[in-house]
Amino acid sequence: MRPYPVILSLLCLGALALLIAPASLLAGPTAPPSEPMTFETEEQEVRYQKLIRELRCTVCQNQNLIESNAPLANDLRRQISLMIVDGTETQEIVDYMVARYGDFVLFRPPMNATTYLLWFGPIAMLVIGLSALGMVLYRRRSQVGTGDLSEEEQERLRRLLGEGGGGKA
C-alpha cells in the first residue's frame, strides 16, 4: 500500500515528541546545583526549598537562588540553610534578604506605593481597553440605525440591482 500516511504520522509523532520533551525537562530542578544542604527535620527542608525558589539571585537577575550557579547564590543558599537550622522564622529570613538587597530579591514583589503600577497596571489597561471597545461598539450601533432604507435609497438600490442583474453589460 501507499507508505505516505504511515511516514506522515510518524513524522507528526516525532514532532510532537520534540515539543513535549523540553517541557518535561523544564519541569523544575529538584535540587540546588551544588553542595546539598543537610537539615534536621523535613519541615526545615521544605522551608528551605520554598525560600530558594522565591528569592532572586541579584547577580543573574532572572534566576532564583535554586537555579543559579553564581558564587553569590551559593553563599546565599548556605546562609539561608544556616539560618533555618538555627531556627530562624521564614519571614525573618526574607526580611534579612530584603534589608540587604532590597525588594528586588523577592520574585513576588510586595504591594507598596512603588509597585501599585506594577500590580494594577495590567488591570487598568484591561479596563481602559474594554471601555474603549464598548464605546466604539455603542457608537457604531447608534450610527448604523434601524437598517431601513429611505424611499430615495430604495430607488437607488433597485437601479443598481437592475444594472447588475441586467447581464454582462
Partner: peptide, 8 residues
C-alpha cells in the same frame, strides 16, 4: 559582603 548587600 552579604551584610553589605554586595552582588557585583
Amino acid at each position: 559582603g552579604i551584610d553589605y548587600g554586595v552582588y557585583a
